[in-house]
Amino acid sequence: MSSVATSPKSAGPACAAGQPAVQLAHVTVAYGARVVLQDITLELPSARIIGLIGPNGAGKTTLLRSIVGAQRVLEGTVRVLGAAADAVRQRVAYVPQRRDVDWSFPLSVLDVVLMGRYGKLGLLRRPSKQDRELALDALKQVGLAKRQACQIGELSGGQQQRVFLARALVQDADLMLLDEPFNGIDTTTQSVIFDLLCEQRQRGRTVLLSTHDLHSVEQNCDQLVALNRRIIAFGPVDQVFTAPVLQSTFGSQVAVVGDGQTVVTRN
């Protein structure tokens, strides 16, 4: 996988400067009587690309939504960039799952990217010329500047995901949360996205992305969180990406074949 392989993934937690990007202490989340996340305690260092792995229904989306302040937690505390989630909203970018969105919505590609700036705009204020330039710039970074006037439904799945990434980039955030960014997209797009994320890391930003594509996280992430309602393991990739951890995360859904070659069978 192209240039990503040269990324400094050997950099251990020892190099992590400054405060942790996310601190969760004994966080429990429940929908009605159903507990989705139980007693999550986690400290994510800054300036890293961190993968969040777990089977369907493990609570990956809920964890991301708790960090971004969109999900009320029943117990425990969530600190983001050293403050309460509500206080630092402007510095956190969130990319929801692509399939949750109605892509036939009558918006242009540029309109969607501009939404990233809405968080910084108050009521009544329209996006300024400068906002538009920033949005166009973000589109250039993901290689879609030429398609800015297209209706979003005209793009391919991979291009739509890149538009969402551009929308996160335009927020100029210190923490980026991506929910299943690799669902149903090709490997080329995947490496384009990882290149951009590495660039963010070099600028000291933290990226947390959930996925069930184990192959890509093994290659491109610095650290991994293995989640299945509880934290199963957290640490550098080579420590988490082991047969025992994967098996207790995915249960019978995972088969470990030979030396680190992992096959995940869903359902």
Partner: peptide, 21 residues
């Protein structure tokens, strides 16, 4: 007119709207 962008974000991508507070 006053709430145009809020109405649009909530309609298009409620998850983003929530993340924006």
């Amino acid at each position: 007119v006053v709430c145009f962008k809020e109405l649009v974000v909530v309609a298009f991508d409620p998850a983003l709207a929530q993340a924006q507070g």
